[in-house]
Each structure stands twice: as C-alpha cells, then as structure tokens.
Nucleic acid binder design. Structure first.
Lengths: 135, 135
DNA sequence: CTTGACCTTGGACTATACTCCACCCTTTAT
DNA sequence: ATAAAGGGTGGAGTATAGTCCAAGGTCAAG
C-alpha cells in the first residue's frame, strides 16, 4: 500500500495531480486509513503511466477515463458498443500514427538539409519539407 | 487570394481560430484590402493543415510556431541550433510513436477479446491488455 | 512532547486554446 | 437603395489540465 506521496514520486506526478485525477474518476485509492490518508495499490503506478502515455499521444483525460472504464467479456450484452468504441479509437490512433510519420519524415528531411547533410537545402522550411512527402 | 471565411472553410477551422493563430504568430495574411480585410494565399491551406496535424499529435501551438519559423540553409551560422532543435523533435516524435504503438496493440487485444474474437477475454481491461504487450 | 514531514479539504489561480459577443464597417445581391 | 452576408476590433467567457495555498490533522523521531 502506498500513500499519496509515494505513488506520486514513483509515477512522476504531483500529489495534486493524483487528487485531481481522482476528482475526475481516473484513479481511486484502494482504501483510506482511519485518519483519512489515501492508500493506493502498487499497480496504480501502471495506471498512472498509462494515463501519461495516453495523454502524450493526444487523448484527453475524458477519453482516457472512458478507456480505463472499458471491460470486455465475450458474452457482454454491451459488447457491441465497447467494440465500436475501441475500434473507433484504433482508427484515431492509426490516423495519428500517419500524421506523425509525415511530420517525422519532414523533420528528417529538414535535419538532413542542414550542416552539410546530403539533402539539397531547397526544402528549407518545415512546410517545404512536408510538401516533399506529399508529392 | 482568400478572404478569412474562404480560408476558414477550406481549412476546416473557424475565422476566430485564424485570427487567434495570427495573434500568436502562426499565420499572417499576405496582405489586407483597403478596407482592412485579411487576404491569404492559397498555400495557407497547407499551413493550417500542418498546424492541425501537429496539434493532433501533441505539439503545442508554441512548438508549432517554432517549427514553422525554422529555415535551414547549409551555411547558416545558427545551423547547429536548428539541427539540434529538429533532432530533438524527431526524438520526441519517435517516443510518441512508440507509446502510440503500445496503445494501439492494447486496443487491438481488447477488440479481439470481444464479441467472439479469438483472444481469451482474460485481459479484459485496457490495463490488462497493455500489460500483455509489456511482458 | 514537540518538531518536521506528510496528509486532509476547499478554493483560488494559471496556461493553453479557443469561442462568443457587441458594435461597427464593407461588400454583394436583389 | 437597402438588406443580408461577411469582415474588423476588443474584450469577456469556456474547457481542459493542472498548480498553489491556507488552515488544519497525523505520525515517526529525537
């Protein structure tokens, strides 16, 4: 069992952030001490790190909340809805992966045009480099 | 030459957003009419779509501003700085691509555990599915 | 038995990225 | 000639995601 400060430092967030996430339903302490201290389980570290990853790639806390709420069972009557939600998120992720690849290639082109690299410096801005990708 | 409404609808943003981006240095109309109307060039559509892509994958408007400002010339004295900035962004993008792949795989596992899919429904939450990836 | 580190809640404050509104001017269509 | 559609500015308001602070309770060490 971890107190809030311990989880915070393990997960690399502030105690305030943990309480903020709790207020928004992203995490709940397993229990409280008699004096009201929050007690988290060790696996909550992974929960936080998932939240951070998902945030980094552009999901909002609200969407992350929905992702964390998901529970699949093969015979669930709401299964169709869950599948639809997840498949939709997969599409979103695929789209973002594509955008990201384009931007990455442009950055590479740009880096390569620089400091004696072998790319001609004709595509000397990010938009120029991006348009090379799009041809 | 496009007036603000035309650019807005081509680019899929609001006029207010364009003015907001202008205030923050992300785009400037090529010129103004005598009456003060903003006139944009057609290529600004691509500029906006770059901004939207970059935003979608997690760059802030501030970072996007910096990316758009970049100009590489092989003999630029500030070339080293530019290269460093760009190479740093490439790393960030690579990291995000990794996070995204992990999340995508988890979503797939989850989707597959659903509705008679062939994955066992034992990893029935996103965290469960994610932990399969991390083994 | 007190000091310092840690915890509680509630509420105010901040940054980012818009979005909306009022009020007024310009352009276009009838 | 006039109305509707569109544009300009300035400023207020909103949503998201925290961050900080005050006032107070808890707990382990010396």
């Amino acid at each position: 069992m971890l107190k809030i400060g311990a989880l915070a430092s393990l997960a690399g967030v502030s105690r305030d952030t943990l309480r903020f996430y709790e207020k928004h339903g992203l995490i709940t302490p397993d229990t409280r001490t008699d004096s009201g201290y929050r007690l988290y389980s060790e696996t909550d570290v992974y929960r936080i790190s998932f939240i951070l990853s998902a945030k980094e790639v552009g999901f909002t806390l609200n969407e992350i909340h929905q992702l964390l709420e998901l529970e699949v069972t093969k015979d669930d009557k709401s299964c169709h809805d869950v599948k639809q939600f997840v498949d939709n998120k997969i599409q979103v992720v695929n789209q973002r992966l594509g955008e990201m690849e384009k931007i990455k290639q442009s950055l590479k082109t740009l880096s390569n045009a620089c400091c004696g690299g072998d790319e001609p410096a004709t595509h000397c801005t990010i938009l120029g480099a991006l348009s090379v990708q799009n041809r």
